[in-house]
Design a protein around this nucleic acid. Sequence first.
DNA 1: GCCGTTTTCGGCCCGACTGTTTTCAGTCG
Length: 584
Amino acid sequence: MSSQKSDSVHSEWSNQELADVFERIANLLEIKGDVIYKIRAYQRAAESLRAEPRSAAALLAEGKLDEIPGVGKAISEKIEELITTGKLEFLEQLEQEIPPSLLELLQVPDVGPKRAALLWKQAGITDLAGLEAAAREHRLSKLPGLGEKSEARILAGIEALGRRTGRMSLDVAWAHAQRWMDWLRQQPEVQRVEPGGSLRRWRETIGDLDLIAASDHPEPLMERFIHHPDVQRVKGHGENKSSVELRNGVHIQLWAQPPQRFGTLWVYATGSKAHNVRLRELALKRQLSLSERGFEDASGRLMEYATEEEVYAVLDLPWIPPELREDHGEIEAALKGQLPELIETRQIQAELHSHTTWSDGALSVEGMARAAIERGLRILAITDHSGTLGITGGLKAEQLPAQRAEIEQVQARLGKQIKLLHGIEVDIMADGSLGFADEVLAGLDIVIASLHSSLRQPRETITARLVRAIRNPHVDLIAHPSGRLLPNREGADLDWDTVLAEAKAHGVALEINANPHRLDLTDLYARRALELGIPLAINTDAHSPGELDLARYGAAVARRAWVGPEQVLNTWTVERLTRWLAQR
DNA sequence: GCCGTTTTCGGCCCGACTGTTTTCAGTCG
């Protein structure tokens, strides 16, 4: 990407695109060899932009860009230049000095900014193809600081890039992690095994798996780990840390320390990196140095801790739930004793988005109802698809009375075990109208509206389309608002400031779709919705009984968004929920 | 380049692992 926007599909710079520009600047400055703290400033600004739910364009208009952490005078001006002119003089200058194709080299393991500069200046290598050719011709090993082993590692790294499977959805990652944790627990040297990294923080997709072990004898454990028959390539191997690539393309990092250091190790290997940096800064203010081994005081004495609670207590902090550890304000909240109460999966007692054989579900109304009862749910909304284009086997409006009759019969049989609601998941058409007429929607207990088609419309069009649905007086809830599919299909290019403002204005709830391939709303916008007081729903969108168990993934998104039980419709009593629906 | 319950100037996290080196630089998380 250059600093010039390639086309005019987007009317505005998204925070993500701005972040990409600053990350690009940081990488180019690193290759150039600029002051490390300037580089970190650009990196921090990029991270903050990605974590900022309000659009930078809107903040600029309000003169509030400096509310973004790490954005000061210089970066504010650059954001303004990008938004107003579409390009950035500073970046264009930089790209004159440093060939931007060098940035490709940074994707290769073991190639960082210093080596990229070396490869460029001493060997004339400016892109990935050039690097691969040089490695194959054994020209790399002749460069200063590089030998035959480095050359072989770099070549292996380039080949691994081609195999790279990308990020995993959360359910896939957990399945792999469980298998490996079971294996690790069977090893004689292991006292304890836990997940770490982005998996434990329940990030929406997972790159590498981080597994943490307590062991008095880590060496033989690491030895057995790297020689496991599923291991294709050993990326690194030491006493306390090893990392491997498996034959199935999954990358695993195993960390180990003795049990009495498990607390600091687990904090460290859980991250996030930004959270860890903040903890270390707090430690330094107390004349302590914090690492995965423990706290070291000025005299060099190491203090070891077996639990995370003890580690946080040293810094006068309460234990912080992993889902919050992103340096998105959790340290400040913890210091003030104001960590939020987070929703628990067990508090979810309603499923407000489910499908039956009336559309594309696997079970009958009664089958789904009984599955819901088995899982302890008190409320189940049957919300089959409206029979509009693109949805196979959707309901026609004429079928709704028959479906209602069936739901009432099942309700009569099941009695007080569960409250069934007759709803619909109505399609939002390409023009923003709904798949059913208002008179039809008026007769239903709950109306969910969602986008399924034409997700690639330009931002203004698709935003207006969603807004029109939100403004329909019969719509209670917008399901999976962006329509994204993890790990690969991006969601609609929505103007979220507008969508959230409209949802608030009309009291329409927004769904956190719990399916691990959706997780939509994202944590970012769920947190903004929380702050705005927009009602939230955590729904599995179950098409089969097993999918009702996906609620925990939705709860994870809500927890990452600092959401407690109060604002989530699914935690409400039958009376409160039916009253809310009736008032709308 | 950013930031402020030690500061508007002078700071800005830490160790493991690797390879190429004779004591350390680069990369990574």
